[in-house]
Nucleic acid binder design. Structure first.
Lengths: 160, 160
DNA sequence: TGATTGTATCTCAGTTCTGAGATAAGTTCT
DNA sequence: AGAACTTATCTCAGAACTGAGATACAATCA
């Protein structure tokens, strides 16, 4: 019978304390993100949308027609991803592509009338759902968390 | 020429302020998560690993053999996902499945000798990389952020 | 002007999942 | 013990991407 190879588990306590704290922050950040995201997913799925699709719709709803490259930067998807998302939304009749007069390579995405109507209908409920999801923090804690996360996110952004 | 349908963009300022704050927190949380995650992705990819694969390896490294269901809960993947990840890691020779004596339905995953060696080699660098990624916050800010995110994450967790 | 370089989008093969249902085993009732 | 229920993992079709390379256009340089 082969002897089972089972070394004692490694502990993080042999790491420098700053690294312990950093890892703990990263794990906690990931868990919090996941927990809130699940609320967002559950909400948009009721309309047959993915999070990516909703992110595009919401951006167009609040900004009006937007170049695909600009959408890509804002919602953080790959070049293939933005083409895919706009294709799907176009198939669903919620978004249309428009030529850009200044640059014939570029294209705008914009909400169709139907897309616009959909967002007017579902966005308020979505906002409520997110508000519910983050109720674990008081108003002032939410401000603190937002400030810290903004600072963290900006500093961590990879140079493109 | 068809008239272009272009309603004025919606603003969030007509939402209740608590909803405005909640949405801002959610967007900022997502951006911060993404920014830090990209560092983690870039690091583990150098070893040909995905984030999910690394998460499994790291868990086994720090906890020793673990039931698949327990891994699933901890790294937040679907039932199909954990089977997929352990399959891949088994193919790579980094992990092995073991029978559970108390429950013949259940299975442990454990690091192989090679998996153990890999983690001893790459984990310290990974920890350094994450530490770099969250340098935007001071030690005490990291503590504050961790506390707020833990509170947020726990409150947002969906009942299973 | 032509050549070179840069940029915006698209294509497409491949990756990493999800989630519904299947299977097998454990648990709790009668 | 047998039935009914629950639980752990696996299967598999398909969703939602990624990223390298292609294409087409734009901008800059010699």
């Amino acid at each position: 019978m082969p002897k089972v190879h089972d070394p004692p588990p490694a502990t993080t306590t042999d790491l420098p304390v700053d690294q312990q704290a950093a890892l703990k922050l990263w794990v906690t950040l990931a868990r919090a993100f996941n927990a809130v995201q699940q609320h967002a997913v559950a909400d948009v799925r009721r309309e047959g949308l993915s999070i990516g699709e909703f992110a595009v719709l919401e951006l167009l709803y609040h900004r009006g027609q937007t170049l695909l490259g600009e959408i890509q930067k804002r919602i953080l998807v790959s070049s293939g991803g933005i083409t895919f998302l706009v294709d799907r939304l176009e198939q669903k009749g919620l978004v249309e592509r428009r030529a850009c007069p200044d640059d014939r390579r570029a294209r705008y995405a914009a909400l169709t009338r139907e897309g616009s109507r959909l967002l007017r209908r579902i966005f308020p409920r979505h906002a409520e759902r997110i508000t519910e999801a983050v109720r674990g923090l008081s108003a002032s804690e939410q401000r603190d968390a937002t400030r810290l996360l903004k600072q963290l996110g900006l500093a961590a952004e990879l140079p493109e």
